[in-house]
């Protein structure tokens, strides 16, 4: 079903909207959540919460594209749940992703407030705009979607080793960019 028809169903407050959303974007939403949350029940709750948030936000929102909209909701919910659970449950993959994120940040940089996080986001977006498509794809899949390196290797047709190297170099490049931009505390 086309996105516009699914959105129309939401506007009509038809529960079929959730069925169609799940049918079309369920796998993507589940994968986004599962990349961050290890526990299957957590993932399912996150998926359900994603659909509830979507139901509550359309209308008034008319998201375009719908896919990115629901994936963003799923990611935000999963990350919040991850940090809430973190003391008890560690997810090897997302911990690794977070470790790698920290590695990108030059020593001396503090991200302690929402404002500083926004500034860092803007710098990351500027950095992404300078990358070619292949590298941007890898960076976003790894640090936004939290894909595993093996998934990325499969998706890009290369070896996991090559993906490690490319991600390593991308992190180096981001760190150098942040240093050049004076992104130091």
């Amino acid at each position: 079903m086309e996105d516009s028809k699914i959105i129309s169903l939401f506007f009509e407050r038809s529960e079929q909207a959730i069925e169609e959303l799940d049918s079309k974007y369920g796998p993507a939403v589940r994968k986004t959540a599962a990349n961050i949350l290890k526990d299957r029940l957590d993932v399912e709750e996150c998926v359900n919460d994603t659909y509830l948030n979507t139901w509550n936000s359309i209308p008034p929102h008319v998201p375009d594209p719908l896919a990115a909209y629901v994936c963003r909701i799923a990611r935000n919910l999963a990350v919040n749940r991850y940090h809430a659970n973190h003391a008890e449950k560690r997810n090897g993959n997302y911990d690794l992703v977070l470790d790698e994120m920290e590695e990108c940040i030059p020593s001396g940089v503090n991200v302690e407030t929402e404002y500083e996080a926004q500034e860092l986001s803007a710098a990351i977006n500027r950095f992404l705009s300078t990358l070619d498509k292949k590298d941007r794809f890898l960076f976003v899949r790894r640090y936004w979607y939290a894909d595993s390196v093996s998934d990325l290797a499969e998706a890009s047709g290369g070896s996991a080793n090559r993906i490690y190297v490319r991600l390593f170099r991308l992190r180096e490049k981001l760190r150098n960019t942040l240093v050049k931009e004076g992104f130091l505390a």
Binding site: R75, N76, V79, Y82, H83, L98, M101, E102, I105, V109, N110, V111, E112, T113, E114, E116, A117, Q118, L120, S121, I124, N125, Y143, W144
Partner: peptide, 12 residues
């Protein structure tokens, strides 16, 4: 650095 805020920065 708070990892929650780092998640948020990369999330945006």
């Amino acid at each position: 650095m708070k990892r929650e805020l780092l998640s948020k920065a990369f999330g945006n």
